[in-house]
Amino acid sequence: MLDKNQIAQRIAKEVKDGYYVNLGIGIPTLVANFVRDDISVEFQSENGILGMGPFPYEGEEDPDLINAGKQTITALPGASFFDSAMSFGMIRGQHVDLTILGAMEVSQNGDIANWKIPGKMVKGMGGAMDLVASAENIIVAMMHTNRAGESKLLKECTLPLTGVACVKKIVSNLAVMEVRDGKFHLLERAPGVSVEEIQQATEGDLVVEGDIPEMKF
């Protein structure tokens, strides 16, 4: 079973040379730490920066330089700043190559829910609805089950949706899956996790074809 850093590490393998990438809050933020340094990638933060760098050194933080998680960051050589309307123009106009975000639930037709638990948590959708509605290439980073052990990969989402039929790939603590033709397709297993365990943890339809390899990092 993978921890959060290992999920991020596996997702980092999906980031290709020349990609502009938007990283969501939580596990997706960690992906930046694992991208190979022999490829050229620029991270976009939707509050208005392309070319986002690591956290600043102690004492060098700038209140006018933050990411979408409101954390202090730095700008790398070649970075640019822009306003929110232009930022979402980039996203809506499909200029961003890859979007990586977290989810509370994903359904087998690619619906995603990650912004609201009625009566309990209503923080708002932020930029998630814009991102999932427009991005061609969406990878979800998530835990396969909730704290009670119930599956978060469902036939149909139970929570209010963020977007419909948009998720293409999921990397969970148990597996890598593709969402295609209204089903989850198992691609890789986490080290030491069996196909049966993944099947048991998946409420939605899971297609298993042939031998499923263990993930490589």
Partner: peptide, 12 residues
């Protein structure tokens, strides 16, 4: 005042 909401830094 320009308050920082989430101060995140790394060590030199």
């Amino acid at each position: 005042e320009k308050r920082i909401e989430q101060l995140t830094v790394r060590k030199k």
